[in-house]
């Protein structure tokens, strides 16, 4: 399914031309999802933090303000977009190209996969001189995407849905879909606390994700950041 295009600079007549190959990796719906999702995560983290630790109190009549109401509304609206986006992302994993499926599974029984993970760990510990190049996520990134993003996204949707169901009430569709998961936590205080912890895990994921994307764009001689904009992964030293 990967469309390939040879792009060379030879036609320009320069002495230092390197043939650069690019592969179409991320299709348009997936890229759109990525950036909408990224925006949702920022909004959700900021508003979620403020729900747990509200801004300073305001005086006057209650009817003059709606600060927590607005913060909660933005959080819930972003949560709906995040959740529906996740469903759309699952749909795209089914109908999209092979790279769209990568974050939903770990090739647990593949020996070469774990060899690749070990190599990547070596690369990040400065033990390996040369990075390997991959069309999709590298094996370590693949692992991180699965556990820190996909699993956490499901966890946040389930815990968040269960908390939302506390407001919509017993018997609401949110309660029927998510309520059983919330009940596993016993005291709802635990549910709130673990949802809050989940936010921090995702913050940590974002820190690593952004750092590694920029670093590998520079260090491993393949495009990363622009790939999520154009969809094309360019191999800067030519062949794969």
């Amino acid at each position: 399914m990967t469309s390939q295009a040879e792009t060379t600079a030879e036609g320009l007549g320069s002495a230092h031309t390197i043939p650069r190959r690019s592969v179409y990796v991320y299709e348009a719906p997936l890229r759109l999802w990525h950036w909408v999702n990224a925006a949702c995560i920022v909004v959700l983290a900021v508003t979620g933090y403020l729900i747990a630790s509200p801004p300073p109190s305001v005086m006057g009549q209650a009817s003059d303000h709606f600060i927590m109401g607005d913060i909660r509304f933005v959080h819930f609206a972003a949560a709906y977009i995040f959740g529906i986006g996740f469903l759309g992302r699952i749909y795209w994993a089914i109908v999209g190209n092979e790279h769209a499926r990568q974050i939903f599974y770990v090739p647990f029984w593949s020996r070469s996969y774990w060899g690749g993970v070990a190599h990547e760990i070596g690369w990040y510990l400065f033990l390996k001189k040369k990075p390997r190049v991959y069309v999709g996520h590298n094996p370590l990134a693949h692992l991180a995407m699965f556990f820190l993003y996909t699993v956490m996204a499901v966890f946040m949707i389930m815990t968040g849905g269960a908390m939302y169901a506390e407001g919509t009430g017993l018997g609401s569709w949110q309660d029927r879909v998510f309520g059983w998961f919330g009940a596993l936590f016993g005291n709802p205080q635990n549910l709130h606390t673990w949802h809050h912890m989940g936010m921090w895990v995702i913050v940590i994921f974002v820190i690593i994700h952004v750092y590694v994307a920029i670093r590998e764009d520079i260090m491993s001689r393949q495009s990363m950041v622009s790939t999520m904009i154009s969809g094309e992964r360019m191999f800067k030293d030519g062949g794969q």
């Binding site: 509200p54 109190s57 009817s63 303000h65 709606f66 927590m68």
Partner: peptide, 21 residues
Amino acid sequence: SQRIHDKCYRRAHFDAGQFVE
């Protein structure tokens, strides 16, 4: 079936962002 918070008579102050500090 409902939380204290859901029917609290001070709920309007929560939604407004008015808190005892």
